[in-house]
């Protein structure tokens, strides 16, 4: 069916409005971060990179950025290892209803309201003395990131032809070499995409982090949140822009990787 020209124009206009509505609040921090004024007034009257200079010359901001990157990296590694083990075990389980129940349990942190996890973890961490510790942050963020790696790797495995493993065995590869030479290379793109999502989940996490932070260990989103309640200088916009650029690049990379995996499995 051909769409008439007026309908086409109307649909395009609607699409543009909705896109703008979705993206505009995020995009607006970019010009704000380059303002020459000391307040978050939009539109800016002049341009200056001074808020980026201030961001990178203030040890509080750079420490928080460093913490976020370090925690994100550790979470990505941990969640990917655990997610891989979980996805492979779920595939190997003969009892499918048990496998589905376990999968639901693994995905629970995605459905559970964040505030409930936050309060639960806070109570637990107080008892363990993990509040404000690096391993505390990594543990807490991994809980939130694990569903993403489990999903990504499960999808990757679903597109993986198990007969390739039979072929490898028949050609003389033992089960361990079959895993490393045949299974892993074919699931790697989904593992990487899972790792990227895990990193991003940790990198922009605020809610849990607010509960378990300490004056000595802060992440970037937490510092932004506490600085916005004190003063609103555009350093905040510079930090927000940095987070946005990093997460956007990683998420797009992740999507491309998982998309390519699906495409390859079709062929």
């Amino acid at each position: 069916m051909r769409t008439s020209l007026p309908t086409k124009i109307a649909l395009w206009a609607l699409a543009v409005v909705v896109s703008a509505w979705l993206v505009f609040p995020s995009i607006i921090v970019i010009p704000l971060s380059f303002t020459d004024k000391a307040s978050l007034v939009f539109p800016p009257s002049g341009w200056s990179p001074r808020w980026y200079e201030r961001f990178f010359s203030n040890p509080a901001w750079t420490m928080a950025l460093g913490n976020s990157l370090l925690i994100g990296l550790l979470v990505a590694v941990l969640a990917t290892i655990l997610g891989t083990l979980a996805a492979f075990s779920l595939r190997a389980l003969r009892n499918r209803s048990l496998a589905n129940a376990l999968k639901l349990g693994l995905l629970a942190p995605m459905i559970m309201p964040g505030i409930i996890i936050a309060i639960g973890l806070y109570a637990l961490f107080l008892k363990l003395g993990w509040v404000g510790t690096l391993h505390g942050f990594v543990f807490a963020h991994t809980v939130l990131a694990l569903p993403f790696t489990v999903i990504a790797i499960t999808v990757g495995l679903a597109g993986f032809d198990a007969q390739l493993e039979q072929a490898a065995l028949s050609l003389g590869a033992n089960p361990l070499s079959t895993f490393f030479w045949v299974t892993l290379p074919n699931v790697l793109p989904s593992m990487i995409s899972g790792a990227l999502f895990a990193f991003v989940t940790s990198f922009d996490e605020v809610l849990l982090s607010l509960f378990i932070k300490s004056p000595y260990l802060n992440t970037l989103p937490v510092l932004m949140y506490s600085s916005v309640t004190r003063n609103t200088d555009p350093t905040l916009a510079a930090a927000a822009t940095l987070i946005m650029v990093i997460t956007t690049v990683l998420v797009i990379t992740g999507l491309i990787l998982s998309g390519r995996k699906k495409h390859a499995s079709v062929l």
Partner: peptide, 12 residues
């Protein structure tokens, strides 16, 4: 030696 219906060649 085993030959499969859907070839089972290693795609990578």
């Amino acid at each position: 030696g085993i030959v499969f219906q859907h070839y089972a060649l290693f795609p990578h």
